[in-house]
């Protein structure tokens, strides 16, 4: 397979879906021989470099009813082909889901955010995917559709490893739903890259609920420190039900850093990731706590 990125040497049959039924029928028929194309920012790179060689490309950007953001008392529902840029521009995301807003803001170039979709970011299943830690801390649910029907999967069960998800070959991710956020809740996302618009060396998201001076519930998720984005229950448990102080935040941040097992790769080293994870988690906790109305 040629790896000249000037052209796409691979040959395939192009299938342009205009309805969900059509896309699911092709997925059912071709399964592992097909790949779903939406924004193309991951798939085309992988095809150019020969990492994947699908016989069929199913283009789903023209499927009506997959590109939407609906915010109401039941929370937020996001269609899978919604672009990152559309999420960034959505008032309900910006005001109600700070961690998700900060994640999409931090991602890539303007042009890439105009192309890339949230469904693609999840389906690509990079351990560094920036939308994953926020969805983990919000307890998002993913809707997976096939000709046989739909099933709902908690985002925590979706990622199986680098590039691997629980999506069956005949299934399509169609919707991401996030529960409503109360007035005494707050969330935040932080990422460390080499330069702006970079892939994360490490990223972290926090979501917590406040009652007075106490944190009633807390979720913490890291990306780029394990084969999949992960939660760190060790640190979460230290905060839940406790009065939040600077000391407790530092203790929880240390516990979070101790719980992760990052590797060294071409973006960063294990040692560096361990060191900065503590600082990043402490900062993310402070930001989320203050957004929940808490004082320090």
């Amino acid at each position: 397979m040629a790896t000249d990125t000037r052209v796409l040497a691979a040959e395939f049959q192009y299938l342009e879906a205009h309805s969900l039924d059509e896309a699911l029928a092709w997925l059912g028929q071709y399964g592992t021989r097909a790949r779903v194309l939406a924004g193309g920012t991951d798939l085309l790179v992988k095809m150019k470099t020969g990492q994947v060689q699908p016989e069929y490309i199913i283009y789903i950007k023209k499927v009506a009813g997959l590109d939407y953001i609906q915010a109401d008392e039941a929370g937020l529902r996001i269609g899978a082909t919604t672009t990152l840029r559309k999420l960034e521009g959505c008032a309900a995301v910006k005001t109600g889901y700070s961690a998700l807003y900060e994640a999409v803001r931090s991602m890539a170039a303007t042009a890439i955010r105009n192309m890339g979709t949230i469904g693609g970011n999840l389906g690509n299943a990079s351990p560094a995917a920036d939308t994953a830690p926020p969805l983990l801390v919000y307890g998002a649910t993913l809707k997976l559709a096939s000709q046989a029907g739909t099933r709902l999967v908690p985002v925590e069960e979706f990622f199986l490893g680098p590039g691997k998800t629980c999506l069956a070959p005949e299934e399509l991710l169609t919707e991401i739903s996030l529960p409503p956020q109360g007035s005494e809740s707050g969330s935040s996302f932080l990422k460390l890259g080499r330069v702006a618009a970079d892939i994360a060396k490490i990223n972290v998201a926090v979501s917590l609920q406040r009652s007075g001076r106490n944190c009633t519930a807390c979720r913490i998720a890291f990306g780029s420190v394990a084969p999949t984005p992960i939660r760190v229950p060790e640190a979460e448990a230290l905060l839940a039900g406790q009065e939040i102080t600077e000391d407790l935040i530092e203790t929880a941040a240390q516990a979070g850093a101790a719980a992760i097992k990052p590797i060294s790769d071409n973006r960063s080293t294990r040692e560096y990731r361990l060191k900065v994870s503590r600082v990043m988690l402490a900062e993310a906790l402070r930001a989320a706590w203050q957004r929940a109305g808490g004082v320090l």
Partner: peptide, 23 residues
């Protein structure tokens, strides 16, 4: 050719996108 540099930027319906990653 990989979406890192944006030298191939064009506007699609007024929005900047990367022509090297578009079929």
């Amino acid at each position: 050719g990989l979406g890192e540099c944006a030298a191939c930027t064009v506007l699609v319906n007024g929005q900047p996108m990367l022509a090297c990653l578009i079929l």
